[in-house]
Design a binder for these strands. Structure first.
Lengths: 342, 342
DNA sequence: CTGTTAGCGCATTCAA
DNA sequence: TTGAATGCGCTAACAG
């Protein structure tokens, strides 16, 4: 293990000063051609690389941005990361990824760590537990410290900063509207508990679509799935004989795929007896059988947009910089699970 | 935007020296109780946090490890990251994730960047393009520079370092054996081109299982899928009337799920007419219909193990440290797609 | 053309 | 009990 090569060592080798070496390596016109050549050749031979830490300390910036996401084993979030990485790389930035595992505590820990000088800016999707708790002081502190912050996916009105959101309302709306369009009369929704903002907003879109179409909103068709309990058990409730719907809109892939499985077990034909659709255009939707109609939320685009906005904030000098909220619109991808054939 | 609070500023505020403040904040016995209390209270009030960059520069370590993976939108890799993150967090390390997108060039770029002082060690899964090219000088340089390296998943004999590998041979073997056990006589394999090591080794396991069972290895049943071309088209070939197999082992989920889809389109019953199984226990396997039998490769465990070994190397002083290769064994998860009912 | 100095933020050794 | 000095690796203003 050779110790790393530094300016100092090169300087000693050539018996010149450190700054001479530094300048020579930057091809400064202040240095004689001959010295430059020798030093450059030497540096190249030994694979000299300036130490990033020293540079960062000196420049007071790291060319690194931090990302805190609730989960990584999740199609949507990994898409977002891809998008962030894509733009970051283009602009010479590195990405540091932290997982909160939906935990408030881990989110705070990660943020503290990132804020201690290791990154120039932070992109985060708020953990469910934080949403539930409603304590956003760590975000406010971050902003107070002048570290640019972009929030994505989950909507937090309490925090003033740049945001990139999915059009969850519109997504919920077009989903329900699609089911109505294909003739469903009793449309159930599988959503999340109230504190999960995205599920909640999709639910609102669903409700709006129903009322716009003069349909009654039946509370018994609104299932708020609690993740701690068995998901399938909760979804089965909706298939009770007396109240079985002819259309289901699930706010994510898993619920949708689970509903399909249950329906098939009950001998129902999807989509003819019951049409089922989800949210998030992931692999499950593509490979389940029948393939699932779904609302695509364009995670990659969201990642790109988040990074772009962060860079904008990073590079602005303006004293009266205005935060923006960017809504990424959704698209419906129609597949077999809602293509009735009768 | 307040400027960040530093030791220097605190020192000025109290009209003491920087080192006094530094010591006071570490509760040094050298400092009087009274001064300590005042300074600590002040620091707490202003949320003083030591600047990581400065600390890193001073300590010559960053408590950060870098990870380079080929893709992130991939169940296996995100599982591995979770595992790495899990252990890293436990030990107070941060994780910096870079994507190579299977590109040699991006891999080299990422590695250069990580090696310039930003991380203490690196975990990587080699990009396909690098495997193809066979140029591993960037890895050798890294090792020469004394930066601990752990390779996972993809096996590269040319590089001397710690490794964590999937038991791909064993996985291929038990997969083929399972198909034999349930009575398949003509077993096809959907694998990758030769340069992709993991696919290749799984193929070897498959061949060994066949020969161990005195079955002939039929070259026409070995399909090496090229990702540039349409996957489904290539897989369809195997269903030609004259040579249609009664069992298929695919080296990943996508190929398996695609094969199932094609089989069903052809009116074949899975598993009764043809049993199909995959590799990697991801969401597709669980949610496709019929649910897929698969070889689980325990990505989370691999991540944990990789991080543990890296930490070991990081903390060792030994001059004659021995590299180790850790094989993570696979398990077969039997589901509907190979449960014959006739 | 080359070298000296100072400073980024911090910890630590040694001196007062 | 406190402070001054040094160094981590690098750059840049300023001297020579």
């Amino acid at each position: 293990m050779k110790a790393k090569i530094t300016l100092k060592k090169i300087a000693k080798g050539f018996d010149v000063s450190i700054s001479t070496v530094s300048k020579a390596l930057k091809d400064s016109h202040e240095i004689s051609e001959e010295v430059k050549e020798r030093i450059q050749a030497f540096a190249k031979y030994y694979h000299y690389k300036p130490n990033s830490l020293a540079l960062n300390l000196r420049n007071q910036k790291t060319k690194t941005i931090g990302v805190i996401i609730p989960q990584i084993v999740h199609h949507f979030f990994s898409k977002v990361i891809s998008g962030i990485e894509h733009i970051a790389n283009e602009k010479g930035y590195n990405v540091m990824i932290c997982l909160s595992n939906e935990s408030y505590e881990k989110e705070v820990l990660n943020m503290d760590m990132l804020a201690s000088g290791v990154v120039d800016g932070i992109i985060v999707s708020v953990a469910k537990q934080t949403e539930e708790k409603g304590d956003y002081t760590h975000f406010k502190e971050l902003i107070n410290n002048g570290i640019p912050l972009v929030l994505f996916d989950r909507k937090i009105d309490e925090i003033q900063c740049n945001k990139v959101l999915v059009d969850d309302f519109g997504g919920g709306y077009i989903a329900a509207q699609h089911l109505i369009d294909i003739g469903c009369k009793k449309i159930a929704i599988l959503t999340t508990p109230n504190h999960v903002t995205v599920g909640n907003i999709r639910l609102e879109g669903y409700i709006k679509a129903l009322t716009d179409n003069n349909m009654l909103v039946d509370e018994s068709l609104i299932v708020k799935v609690i993740e701690d309990h068995d998901i399938a058990d909760q979804i089965k409730e909706i298939f009770r004989k007396s109240n079985c719907p002819d259309g289901i809109f699930a706010v994510n892939e898993i619920y949708a795929a689970t509903a399909v499985k249950i329906a098939k077990n009950k001998g129902l034909n999807v989509p003819n007896d019951i049409a089922i659709m989800g949210f998030t255009d992931g692999l499950i939707s593509q490979f389940s059988s029948p393939q699932l109609t779904t609302v695509a939320q364009h995670g990659f685009t969201m990642g790109e947009k988040s990074m772009e906005i962060l860079l904008e904030e990073l590079n602005q000098q303006d004293t009266d910089y205005q935060y923006q909220t960017n809504i990424i619109s959704t698209d419906i991808v129609i597949r077999e699970s809602t293509k009735k054939t009768n």
